[in-house]
Design a protein around this nucleic acid. Sequence first.
DNA 1: TTTGTGCCTTAGCT
DNA 2: AAGCTAAGGCACA
Length: 285
Amino acid sequence: MGELSKTFPVRDYNLDATLLSGQAFCWQSIGQAWEGVIGGRWVRLRLSKVGIVAEVAKPVHNWACLEHYLQLHFDLGRALATFPDDEPIQNAIAALPGLRLLRQDYWECLASFILSATKQIVQIRQMVALLSKRFGKPLESGGSEPAFAFPAIEAVAACSEAELRDCKLGFRAPNLRGAARDILDGSINWQQLPTMPSNEARAELMKLRGVGQKIADCVLLYAGGHQDVFPVDVWIERALRQLYFTKRRPSAKRLRKFADTHFGPYAGYAQQYLFDHARLHLKLK
DNA sequence: TTTGTGCCTTAGCT
DNA sequence: AAGCTAAGGCACA
């Protein structure tokens, strides 16, 4: 018999900070809970005293998909212990205890970050929601609103540019459509991505128009689980400059090298802490 | 080789 | 109310 809800005992899991942190864009805050879609199923999540409570609309036999997405078995303490013992990163950890990295679907993650160019989180959410509503598969919902999956690669490839522009994508529309078509055409080695080393996977992703290193690195970190990859965007750049390079403005190359070498094997995690700390608590310019 | 500029859209803020 | 800016990438100087 399947179940409609299950509680996963976890410690040190800051669900709010994690789902708000700008790594995923499909979560809606409803009352005390979060509603979204994982693995083609509508899900409601909330934090209780004993752990994360998950509810679904149709009985589930195997919750592995959810455990994987939320990375419930990840040992956060062990990762944090590898961070450098400097003030900026330790302050960021203290400010956002329990912040985690998710493990998302490759296509949804890639598509979301193609949409992210010069957009703020609220606007990315809006684009993702519109795309899902128009071109995603309708799902059984346990909430008051109908639920839709993020549109499949095939569905996006079949859209006209105008249809995508109607979802407020602007100049990102041809990039998203092009990525979907290139993947289906076999123009990049999409199937092997999960098993490739990060340098190779990054190079593959960057063959897509509209995908530079920043977006490729986000996909490697948030979907591929390459936890050593440190995406550098303008916020992180400002944060690193202010926190670590107070004397002289570093070149882009110098900054890149610092990001790649200073933070250790879980640099991607460090990036998330610095990013969210900077975004929420720091005055940057 | 590295670094800077304008452009691609759109929405929300001033 | 027009002008500016925002988690990026690209072509070009």
